Computed example of a mutant assay.
Amino acid sequence: MLASSTLQRWHPKTLSRGTLVIIGLVLLLGSKMAWADNGLTFLTVNDGQSEQEYSVKLQILLLMTALSFLPAFLLMATSFTRIIVVLAILRQALGLQQSPPNRVLIGIALCLSILIMRPVWSDVYENAFLPYDQGEITLMQAFSTAEKPVRNFMLAQTQQNSLEQMLRIANEPVDSNVDDISFAIVLPAFVISELKTAFQIGFMLFIPFLIIDLVVASVLMAMGMMMLSPLIVSLPFKLVVFVLVDGWAMTVGTLSASFSTG
């Protein structure tokens, strides 16, 4: 009777969630210890002469560090910066504070960035990732090959004065060869150029809506309705004009055409 009651009490259906969590943690820790004992490795670097394997903890640290730099790389080394700045200025020009929300704007900018950067990603995948995955080149050679198409795209968008400014900041010769300029100099020059181009496009988008605001404000003052905010009256007119001219398609088309293929 005692044995049957004990088995019934420890039946899986009668276990509490806390007990299941504890059992799961024990199994996870046990498997982790088994991995450490067996010398399981996830990352191996082959320099052509010797093969070096990193421990699991160091590999996880390297992986998490690399993943933490992905958002910064996406913001700085792609077309994302120009697109998101122009979309934010467009929303401000329309007089809308929270619509479209930030998540929608970021989603649009991310999708357009993936589409615009597709030739670059294809080049990186075919000439860097696939040869490395097949063992034809080393990891450092793959990084060097992958840098070239990204670098060419960035230099095609970078303005000469921005590049010269960054060279002066880095105490490098202004007349240096483009191929000899470090990636650490090209990156900030590219970001500054992207911000400048985004503000230029945003200014051109702002002018029509500014004219509508001025016309509405003048009409309200002529009618003696100075207590009424012009933004409340001009907002419907700006939305109607933006929809009639298919403003989103025009904005996306202008942004896509503004990127040079080099």
Rank of each mutant, 00 (worst) to 15 (best):
L2D: 14
L7C: 04
W10L: 13
R17F: 14
L20G: 04
L20R: 14
N38Q: 13
F42E: 05
T44K: 05
V45A: 04
D47Y: 06
G48N: 08
Y54N: 06
L62V: 01
L62C: 04
L63D: 00
L63Q: 07
L67G: 02
S68R: 05
F69I: 11
L70A: 11
A72F: 13
L75C: 04
T81E: 01
V86H: 01
V86P: 01
V86Q: 01
A88F: 06
Q92N: 14
L96Q: 14
S99F: 15
R118W: 13
S122A: 13
Y125Q: 14
F129S: 02
G135V: 07
A142N: 02
A146T: 01
E147I: 01
Q157N: 10
N161W: 10
R168I: 03
A170K: 03
N171Y: 11
N171C: 00
E172V: 15
V178I: 15
D179H: 04
I181E: 08
I185A: 08
V186L: 02
L187E: 11
L187N: 07
E194N: 08
L195D: 00
L195H: 00
F203L: 12
I207G: 07
F209L: 10
F209D: 08
A217F: 03
S218N: 15
S218G: 06
M221Y: 07
A222P: 00
P230F: 07
L235E: 00
L239C: 05
L239W: 09
V240K: 04
V241G: 05
A249K: 13
A249L: 12
S258V: 03
